[in-house]
Nucleic acid binder design. Sequence first.
DNA 1: CAAATTATTGCGTTTTGTGCATAAAATGGA
DNA 2: TCCATTTTATGCACAAAACGCAATAATTTG
Lengths: 295, 295
Amino acid sequence: MKIDFDGIQAFVAIAELGGFGKAAEQLHLTQTALTRRIQKLEDYLGVKLLDRTTRSVALTAVGREFLPRAKGFVVEMSEAIGNLKDLSRSGRGDFCVACVPTMASHALPAVISDYSAAYPGNRIRILDTNAFDVRKAVLSGQAELGVGIPMDAHPEILEISLLEEPYMFFCRQEHPLSAQGSVTWADMREAELIMISSLSVNRVFLDYQLAKQGISLRGAYEVQHLATAIGLVAAGVGTAILPASTLQAGARPGVLSIPLVGPQVQRTIVLILRRNTTLSPPAQAFCELLRARYA
Amino acid sequence: MKIDFDGIQAFVAIAELGGFGKAAEQLHLTQTALTRRIQKLEDYLGVKLLDRTTRSVALTAVGREFLPRAKGFVVEMSEAIGNLKDLSRSGRGDFCVACVPTMASHALPAVISDYSAAYPGNRIRILDTNAFDVRKAVLSGQAELGVGIPMDAHPEILEISLLEEPYMFFCRQEHPLSAQGSVTWADMREAELIMISSLSVNRVFLDYQLAKQGISLRGAYEVQHLATAIGLVAAGVGTAILPASTLQAGARPGVLSIPLVGPQVQRTIVLILRRNTTLSPPAQAFCELLRARYA
DNA sequence: CAAATTATTGCGTTTTGTGCATAAAATGGA
DNA sequence: TCCATTTTATGCACAAAACGCAATAATTTG
């Protein structure tokens, strides 16, 4: 079934404006073209929609009944198409980004603020969850892009390095090691370490790095989230090895972050995208801001 | 704002069927044409809707968001257009006819039954009201056609004679005049006449006819509706001069209708239409049945 | 590695739509 | 009653768009 949208649009315009001439002007056409369109539409439908004398036009019974619906079609579609065009022209629209919690409070805010300035009114849905779920969210399409850490290669996943951050040693200023400019992994044997749950990607990553160095650590405590760990450190419960970004400068008075060397270990933060998928313009814009700032 | 409906339809078909090939088949087009349509649509909108490899197609984020709405447009419009085409092809649809009460129960039923047989499922709205309002209903477009009696000429109104019916004299069989094969206006002076309200077109018409004959009548009773009048006659209250069709044969045992002559007076029933207006196909069909039977 | 599937591109043809000039019809005023 | 004006309809020619065929490119499958 062929649908003559132009004809319907012409019908609505003529019915609303009460004449071919005015409608032609609004549609940027000649009156001739409108006559033809209406003729074609009526011919196709097999019903007259407009009773036209040479002097005026009036709706037929059928036309009167059809007009409201036709008008609805035209305005709804115009709006929808308009939104889509806006979306491309000005990157207007919403999107969803998945992100691991540390980065959500560290790397993202700056980019989000850039983005908000450039595209005010656009909403970003942030899915802050663990690295596994970030990946899953991107794979499923729930999030258009993700910020996390590298994982096993996957044919559908594309990872782009954004930044590297060292793991630091966190302790209170009263701690014996706090006097040093840097600490080594060997020093850890004397520290009461607060570890991250072994389910955490951080922990897996850390264990892997440590194993490579032939170092094995026993954690005195184990928590789920980095934020909890830093809280425990601040409370004087113990010390922790965490990504540098876990602690914003000055956010926790009394807590120091000391470079951990011999060797220095760092984690890579990557931008996670699906292969062969086109980002929506808002997500594309965000992605570019992100890469401009970090990559 | 130009709206590429074909493109949207193509998009929906491809997204729903999961490929250009199947969509092309459904739309009776070649894959080539579909590729072009999607390219044109995406180019116009400025956003990609489908991520296509040489092997498969997938929705982009934008496409996924747009699909439900687009699908809604397509199915709604297809339905609406389908209804309109049905309407022309099989005269399917509803309409409204205005009719004076006598004819509603006399002339119309036969036509309605013909119509129902020819177009089962179509509904007819019957506006049974007095002749003035029948005319008004047609003029306002509330009813597409009317059945009534002739009135003053009006530039917008077209009246087509359907049938003529004589006014008859109605009385019970016990009545002195019932023995005659016909009665004259002169006989009326002795009859207890039940008159119709002077607001009725019937009464106006009758008064006019009588005045032409130089006859003046005084009514003993006055009622609003013809049906009431015949009821009073049946009850033996009096007699009445009414259109022949007021009484169906055998409907009121004991009541006789006697030809009224010297002269015979009759009223014309006309089909009332608006000039320069096209009837909807159902109304058109009904109109033709009506004229076929009576005109 | 060959075959099959699927989307894209180049090109010629056909269809459709448009605009100009003009006709036809109806309204409104003199 | 007649004429000027307004408004829709039509003939014709041209331009643009859409389409289909054939060939191409890229990926999956057996």
